[in-house]
């Protein structure tokens, strides 16, 4: 029996635990509704394969629009919905997973199994990422297929956006894992993660607030925070560029955020491996 199959069993438990929660069912329901909307309510009337008239719930726009532009707009809207609302919901729904793992009577039973503490935490982490990936890809792949079949316009950038959303979640969830391991509080981990998620646009605009600061030290601190914390605002921008098929000029935000995620996960594992339960 390989370690991979044991980790897979942990992922499976986490997956089931997540799906037992109403939030993911709501996520799944909203995704299904959007797909059904695209499937039945959106009518894309293709003319010469390039132009079309569009109607939603039978109401036409009345003018001819570039179909590629329409697809980009719809896919961008779905991507924005996923990147903001989807991430928000996913973080909320998974916030209790680490504290529930560490509950007495559960964690001790897991530790008594022939797998290392690193594997236990990794299994839980991957389980949370897997459930979010399932939900995100459910919406992304099905809406992409529906839109592509209806228009005959196959644009892979939208799928890449799905991957970006999962990566962003994985980075933020690494932070939540660390906070969960240290504090055992889902609510606290969620608050701090939301704070960092919403602090990102502010840090991106830090040049404009330097003048308001009382000392140079605050500027250095802001710079430090910008470079260390995940750059969710820029990751959102990369996602938008991918959806719209535009070139991404810099991937720095992605790899620096990934480094942050790896640091958080490594620290979580270190603390978890030394904790007395």
């Amino acid at each position: 029996m390989t370690m991979i199959s044991k980790i897979y069993a942990l992922i499976q438990i986490t997956f089931r635990e997540s799906f037992a929660k109403k939030t993911f069912m709501a996520f799944f329901g909203i995704s299904t509704l959007i797909c059904l909307l695209f499937m039945f309510a959106l009518n894309l009337d293709i003319v010469d394969g390039v132009k079309s008239s569009i109607s939603l719930f039978g109401k036409e726009t009345g003018e001819l629009i570039d179909i590629e532009e329409v697809i980009f707009k719809i896919e961008s809207a779905v991507a924005v919905l996923l990147f903001s609302g989807g991430l928000f919901m996913s973080l909320f729904a998974t916030s209790g997973l680490i504290p529930s793992l560490m509950r007495q009577g559960n964690v001790d039973l897991l530790i008594s199994k022939p797998l290392g503490r690193f594997h236990i935490l990794l299994g839980r982490y991957l389980g949370a990422v897997a459930i979010v990936a399932f939900n995100v890809f459910y919406l992304v792949i099905f809406s992409w297929l529906i839109l592509s079949f209806k228009t005959g316009f196959w644009h892979g950038g939208f799928l890449l956006a799905g991957i970006m959303i999962i990566i962003t979640f994985a980075i933020l969830y690494a932070l939540m894992t660390l906070l969960g391991v240290v504090t055992r509080s889902g609510a606290f981990s969620l608050m701090i993660t939301y704070l960092i998620l919403f602090f990102s646009p502010l840090l991106l605009q830090r040049d404009q607030i330097y003048a308001l600061l009382t000392g140079r030290i605050w500027g250095v601190i802001l710079d430090g925070l910008y470079h260390f914390l995940p750059k969710t605002s820029e990751l959102g921008n990369i996602t938008r560029l991918l959806v719209q098929g535009e070139p991404v000029s810099s991937w720095t935000a992605l790899w620096t955020s990934l480094i942050f995620g790896i640091i958080m996960l490594t620290t979580s594992t270190y603390i978890f491996s030394r904790k007395n339960f």
Binding site: D108, P114, L115
Partner: peptide
């Protein structure tokens, strides 16, 4: 921890996932 392969454990106040 590899020795745990040959060990069974019933903790006091165990908590199995109640959705299973």
């Amino acid at each position: 921890y590899t020795v745990h392969k040959n060990i069974g454990y019933l903790p006091e106040n165990h908590r199995f996932p109640d959705f299973l």
